[in-house]
């Protein structure tokens, strides 16, 4: 650790912090949408199973919901790209 701390100076420290925060940014951003999409699709499947005649409408709405929920995770991914590469 001491060795690492000595070696890590200036820009290296910045890169270190960026790499760690980039990883955490995407990892944390994926939790909420993961739960959300799981719940959303589960409920949609239940709705389709209960009312197969409404399956088309439920499917469209499900994709819309997934699109909106997924946007959060994707923004996390963009933050990851920004931190890591930009």
């Amino acid at each position: 650790m001491e060795l690492l701390a000595q070696a890590a100076s200036g820009a290296d420290q910045i890169a270190f912090g960026e790499a760690i925060s980039a990883g955490f940014a995407y990892g944390l951003a994926a939790i909420g949408p993961g739960i959300g999409i799981g719940y959303l699709v589960g409920q949609s499947v239940q709705a389709m199973a209960r009312q197969p005649e409404a399956a088309g409408m439920v499917r469209t709405t499900m994709f819309l919901g997934i699109a909106f929920t997924e946007a959060l995770a994707l923004i996390g991914f963009v933050v990851f790209i920004l931190l890591k590469f930009a």
């Binding site: 699109a67 909106f68 997924e70 946007a71 994707l74 991914f77 963009v78 790209i81």
Partner: peptide
């Protein structure tokens, strides 16, 4: 913003 980022980030990922 979300419309653009959704498509972009999905394809980039």
């Amino acid at each position: 913003f979300s419309l653009a980022v959704r498509l972009f980030a999905n394809m980039l990922a």
